[in-house]
Design a protein around this nucleic acid. Structure first.
Lengths: 120, 120
DNA sequence: GAAGTATTTCGTTATTTGGCGAAATATAAA
DNA sequence: TTTATATTTCGCCAAATAACGAAATACTTC
């Protein structure tokens, strides 16, 4: 029950759902997700920790960046939650818009994300 | 997105999830759910209205009772949410305990629910 | 019509949540 | 070592949420 409520609460916020779906395609570091959502880094960090605690994302540390991604082996409950979210929202305009904007961000949002160096 | 968030928020509270799963087997009126959850009637009413607005339950009025039940034809998104909750929680001790207690309540919880008359 | 029961609505209160900025932490670059 | 960047933690505030009791509403029964 605790695990279920952690999942449903994690999915009960638009910013978290947007971040989660953005991570469906590829791993992203916090500053990329921050650029996508347009929220303060501390806020995004909090959102991501909630997704992480629910088991909906996993983290990998690379240099001074922390990449969030879909978990390699999620619990069935989390996988089902993710499948539900994906099926429910892939056609949603906001999500499609995010996918497009994310391409631009990945093409190196000028003056904001281009200080990076080696990031694989 | 609005619909999805209505669903995830509806599932993000333990009392609502317990009520929802209790309704899987049979329709129940508000006072029966109130007896099950042990909350104030006004609180239960509010919870049920949230489930209703999310499309997870439907209502049928019978005399002075209002029966809540699983919807006859729910939207795909709601059906999937319900399936997720059911699969995730049917084995949970709290839910099993609720199912047992509900049997007692239906056998007419003394002094509290026996004022009823014709209820089909 | 009066009284009683079931439910909802309203107003209040305590808690949680989501947001921010500042400070702390960690790593890389100069 | 100093500086810069990425991220998290902390403290604060505003808004949303869950709980209750009282009052309003709807329907039955007397």
């Amino acid at each position: 029950m605790r695990a279920f409520l952690n999942l449903s609460r994690a999915l009960a916020d638009q910013a978290r759902v947007r971040a989660l779906l953005a991570l469906e395609r590829r791993a992203l570091c916090v500053c990329q997700i921050t650029a996508l959502l347009g929220l303060a880094p501390s806020t995004v960090s909090k959102h991501l920790s909630i997704l992480h605690q629910a088991g909906l994302v996993e983290t990998r540390k690379t240099g001074r960046w922390i990449y969030y991604s879909r978990p390699r082996a999620a619990a069935p409950m989390a996988r089902q939650a993710l499948a539900w979210a994906r099926r429910s929202l892939t056609d949603h305009p906001r999500v499609a818009e995010d996918a497009r904007r994310l391409q631009q961000i990945l093409r190196c949002e000028p003056a904001k994300l281009c200080q990076r160096q080696d990031r694989s």
